[in-house]
Design a protein around this nucleic acid. Structure first.
Lengths: 343, 343
DNA sequence: TCTAACGGTGGAACCGATTCCATGTATGTA
DNA sequence: TACATACATGGAATCGGTTCCACCGTTAGA
């Protein structure tokens, strides 16, 4: 293992001082054209590559962003990470990855891991954050962006401590429900996120109910079921729904995975989709498109959420901007096979 | 932003030398019980956290592993990464992530990015590697583990340069085909990976044909189609298959995504699965279970591939072992709804 | 002609750890 | 008692960069 070439070696070969070599490396203006040439030639000749670790030690900056997410196997994250990675790569940042494996208790430890590694910023993706969570982050003094995560933070002061990139969940659910009612559906059910977790899907439930009310449709409690965003939980919730005396015409599941699980339950009972029961999802993941029947849904701009969150974060890191907290991106409705017009 | 506490500060407060403080930090034996206590107390008091960057500079080690993969949105990788993450976290390593976005040309650049960041090891997951690829890695002198990637390397010397963790693809395809023939199927087709890419699926094609031959069944070229492992390519390949004069009884797609795409094509034409055409996949991703009908498949132990590859890599990094190259894990066959017994 | 301002330059000090070396002290052995 | 050995300890040197400071030569302005 040959010892690596140091900037000192470059300087010596080029016959200049160590400071000059450094200035060339960093594109500082005050270097004569002549010496700059010599240094560049020496670098070339020695195949010089700066040691990022040494640089980081002095500058207290690592060109690294830490990404913490709930569960890497959730297909929702794939495109978000892709967006993050795209911007990070183009701005010369690397990504450190931490998977909480659905366990928020690990959060503190993973933040500290990143802090110890001197990341310049952190991106978090989970279901929701409260005051406590933000304080944990804030105490580490690291710029923070939160993507696709419900912000349930009371203390207004904390809003200066992070970026949040999300869609307007209430409006998205409202728009979707309006759309479904517009198709002619009048008997609507939903499968929401974790019941009891006040943050997970309240806005979506609220948007759903608002649309019903505006159209003079009564919400039926027995048609409000709860899951945990997973396929299995959607399957179970749908089974419960099918046990009810009367069946809804359409079920709005607050994640595509749950919608697919619900679809499986429907088809297993021999019902047809959308003729007997229609289904509508949330998220717009690829799986929903591939499913048979493909799942109509409200799409979150996942890739864009990744790019937006990351570029804001980097601007903050580099001192170009301070956090403005809430950034809302727009959702869209995708018609596919699991719904139809009744009119 | 308060200046961080340094080991020097700890030493001063504890009234010991800097070397002693360092020895305590690293659990070196030759420190008196008394001083060790004092140092620990001082650390506690000052909330001392060692600066990993400084440590890395001196030790030339970063406790970081770089992960390079073809496409983070491919659901195949989720569980593999989870396995990697599990071991890395437990052995105190962090993960740097790079997504090639399906473009092998970016490989060199990403390796250099990792080299510059001084990663201790690299894990690569793609479709195949050849001599050139390995040489690129090897020239960087970084321990390398390759997971779930066909190794198409001629130069035997290179086999000392990396670990490879994979299943026996030929045997897996052979076993699966035997299983299908055992169910009573005699008219078998396949949808393979990229035609012309000699590495992508040759072993699977070979295993398939071997099983046919052993059972006295003739392989029909017109039933050998090609995709690119994606859902869309499976859909298209199946459409082509349905154009053939005679239809096969069962189609063995060499990825679950392609099997699902094929299933969609079948159902769109109004055929039933498995009654009219049966389907069999490869990989064992969750999506196949969720699909309706759920896809029978040969499962790769993805999580285990991640853990095994990572623990071997770390052992190598820490000098406990040198690479033994090929590690083969066992596959398994999963019966689901897309196949049935004809007997 | 003298001075101020400025671009260009080399090198010391520094970032915060690890590690080696010199030194001191205690223990065991002849 | 003398000496070898082992353990304990402090601190300088080091890792490979960045940056500040001092210095020099040139040019512009008075």
């Amino acid at each position: 293992m040959s010892r690596s070439v140091r900037l000192k070696d470059v300087a010596k070969l080029a016959g200049v001082g160590i400071g000059t070599a450094s200035r060339v490396l960093n594109n500082h203006p005050n270097v004569s054209k002549q010496k700059r040439q010599m240094v560049l030639k020496a670098m070339e000749e020695l195949c010089y590559r700066p040691n990022e670790i040494a640089r980081s030690l002095k500058t207290q900056t690592t060109k690294t962003i830490g990404v913490i997410l709930m569960d890497i196997t959730n297909p929702f994250y794939g495109n978000v990470v892709k967006g993050i990675e795209y911007i990070a790569y183009n701005k010369n940042y690397s990504l450190l990855l931490a998977d909480l494996n659905c366990n928020m208790n690990a959060l503190k430890d993973r933040i500290d891991e990143f802090r110890d590694k001197n990341v310049d910023g952190i991106i978090f993706m989970g279901t929701s954050v409260n005051d406590m969570d933000i304080k944990i982050f804030a105490s580490r003094q690291i710029p923070l962006a939160i993507i696709s995560t419900n912000v349930n933070v009371k203390d207004k002061k904390l809003y200066a401590k992070f970026y949040s990139v999300n869609i307007d969940n209430e409006k998205a659910a409202y728009d979707a429900t309006q759309y479904l009612i517009g198709l002619g559906y009048t008997k609507l059910a939903y499968i929401s996120g974790v019941q009891g977790d006040p943050n997970s899907s309240i806005p979506r439930e609220y948007g759903f109910k608002k649309a019903l009310k505006e159209n003079g449709i009564q919400n039926r409690q027995e048609w409000n079921k709860y899951g945990s965003f997973t396929f299995e939980s959607g399957y179970k919730a749908m089974q419960a729904l099918l046990e009810e005396e009367e069946r809804p015409e359409i079920v709005f599941a607050f994640s595509d995975l749950m919608a697919m699980g619900a679809a499986k339950a429907v088809m297993s009972r021999g019902f047809r989709i959308p003729e007997d029961i229609a289904l509508f999802g949330f998220d717009g993941i690829e799986n929903g498109k591939y499913f048979h029947p493909s799942i109509s849904t409200v799409k979150q701009p996942r890739y864009q959420m990744g790019t937006k969150g990351t570029s804001c974060l980097i601007d903050w890191i580099e001192g170009k901007e301070s956090p403005t907290c809430m950034i809302t991106l727009s959702h869209s409705i995708i018609e596919r096979e699991s719904t139809q017009s009744l009119l």
